[in-house]
Amino acid sequence: MSTHDYLRQRFFPHMWCPGCGHGTVLNSLLRAVEQLGMSKNEIVMASGIGCSSRISGYVDFHTLHTLHGRALAFATGVKLSKPELNVIVPMGDGDALAIGGNHFIHACRRNIDITAIVMNNRIYGMTGGQFSPMSGVGINATTAPFSNIDREFDVVKMATAAGATFVARSTTFHAQQATDLIKQAILHEGFSVVEILSQCPTHFGRKNKLGAAADMMQHYKDITVPIGSSKKKDNPDLIERGIFVQEEAPEYCREYDKIIEQAMKG
């Protein structure tokens, strides 16, 4: 199959702005699914609310467009009730980490076999450019007109601390790497988190004078390095890309099967 066979092509062109990184994330995700040779019927995509969450409408899987921040909770019900399904949950940064922060850490903790993709554009795009928990200090946003004083999260550190057994990061510039990481995340048995830095030229870019979409992607190239790069020692502000955590741990659905086995013995 070609990647386009996984799309609901009648809804294209999509609703994202020109140059929006979310389209590239969709592109990377479809390549991962295609390279793994997955069938459309075995995938459930659950998403929340926001620009990122519209991704579920564009893919020809079983799709569940849920509530702001709650996608992982819905997905947990889907996965536990039918573990043979592959469940992919793309989320925005505000979606995953502000309103959905509690669901996020508990999904990590449970180690249920779900693939979470955080499409991190550091802004609430759909509502018009308010700062998110990922914006960081000094950023301009429509709700931070005098510059932002809210400190940001590190998704990778948070997912790791909460117990996710696969944690990775890439960017829309590194689309090939993003595809590879998503593939590995899907194959990983347990809760996996892939953070993808994704540009919002319309709100984040414009408010912070970061140029066009391509300039913002170029910036991702400049500010990131592969994990363990010596450049990071000289410049601690560089953001690492790659796989931070990849470990085996009991997966929730399998553990629950053992509970059933035990309970049925009486």
């Binding site: 659950a46 079983h62 569940l64 849920t66 509530l67 709650r70 909770a73 819905f74 997905a75 947990t76 019900g77 889907v78 996965k79 536990l80 009730s81 039918k82 399904l85 509690n102 669901h103 508990h106 629950y256 509970i259 059933i260 035990q262 309970a263 049925m264 009486g266």
Partner: peptide, 30 residues
């Protein structure tokens, strides 16, 4: 689990309600 069904304790009631909706969509009585 004695009857082959599933029970999950979620992180709050928001998630509980969300989870049963997800499980209903796979064909279960929730």
């Amino acid at each position: 689990p004695m009857a082959g069904g599933k029970f999950i304790q979620m992180e709050d009631e928001i998630a509980s309600m969300a989870a049963i909706i997800g499980a209903s969509l796979t064909g279960h009585k929730v």
